[in-house]
């Protein structure tokens, strides 16, 4: 973990009409680090995530991304084309619903290969090898790489989505409730997979979730949001074992222990 942040949000506020979805947010993500964001539905977690990823433009504040060469990019002041280029090469975004992040009528292999094509790779053999490799990395049998993803189970689709986002070897990964609609055993497998891949690839992750067990397992640092603001942030185990804010205490107390 180096010390300069990869991505830094300063005083970010996002509004939809008269609703303030997130308010005056300061947050930073460093290389190789997993940052968890928790809070109730409507707390502004997903809006913040999309703002960090450059998808939603904040009403005020800045989000700065520092590339591998040390150059700073103020995301929301970039031309659309420059922003799209960064999003294509430097980060990935895994959506809660696989159908938001996949093309269901295409094969698993094509779904994984597509980002490479968009990055300009044209050699068919290389693309095919990469797709096979990344399907294996997410523990999918490459025998099924020519099957359409809509024939896959939810957990498998989510793994295809993960592979599709890792194939370009991004430096930063945004995960929006990646285990949302999955049953518990499938969740555990996906979480463990994310944990191992992230450690191996040294990719930085911003993880939005409801699942406190998931953040305990994955996140180095944790941000707790309520009504659009950050009420507490710190070391994950400290925030979960010794929550300071009334809302964090409620959140932890409400979690079932197993």
């Amino acid at each position: 973990m180096s010390d300069a942040p990869l991505l830094e949000a300063e005083a970010v506020t996002c509004r939809f009409g008269r609703v303030t979805a997130c308010r005056d947010i300061d947050v930073a993500v460093h290389a190789g680090e997993i940052l968890g964001i928790v809070g109730e539905s409507g707390a502004g977690k997903s809006t913040l995530l999309r703002c960090l990823a450059g998808v939603v433009r904040p009403a005020s504040g800045t989000v700065t991304y520092t590339d591998a060469g040390g150059r700073e990019h103020p995301l929301h002041a970039l031309e659309d084309s420059a922003l799209r280029r960064l999003a294509r090469t430097d980060w990935g975004f895994v959506h809660q619903h696989p159908h938001d992040g996949l093309r269901p009528h295409l094969s698993a292999g094509a779904n994984v290969a597509e980002p490479l094509l968009r990055c300009g790779e044209t050699r068919y053999g290389r693309i095919r090898t990469a797709a096979r490799h990344w399907l294996e990395q997410v523990e999918l049998d490459p025998v099924r790489m020519d099957d359409r993803v809509r024939t896959f189970s939810g957990g498998m689709q989510q793994r295809v989505q993960l592979a599709r986002n890792l194939v370009t070897e991004p430096r930063l990964l945004f995960l929006d409730e990646p285990t949302g609609g999955l049953d518990v055993s499938v969740q555990a497998r996906l979480l463990d997979l994310i944990r191992q891949l992230v450690a191996r690839l040294q990719v930085a992750v911003v993880l939005v979730t409801h699942d406190l067990a998931a953040v305990r397992l994955l996140a180095h640092r944790l941000v707790v949001m309520q009504q659009g603001g950050i009420v507490e942030q710190g070391l994950t185990d400290q925030v979960l074992d010794d929550p300071q804010h009334a809302y964090s205490q409620l959140l932890v107390a409400s979690e079932l222990r197993c």
Binding site: G234, Q238, D241, D242
Partner: peptide, 9 residues
């Protein structure tokens, strides 16, 4: 001990 480990604030 938990304070010393940074687990408690």
């Amino acid at each position: 001990l938990r304070c010393l480990y940074g687990n408690y604030r």
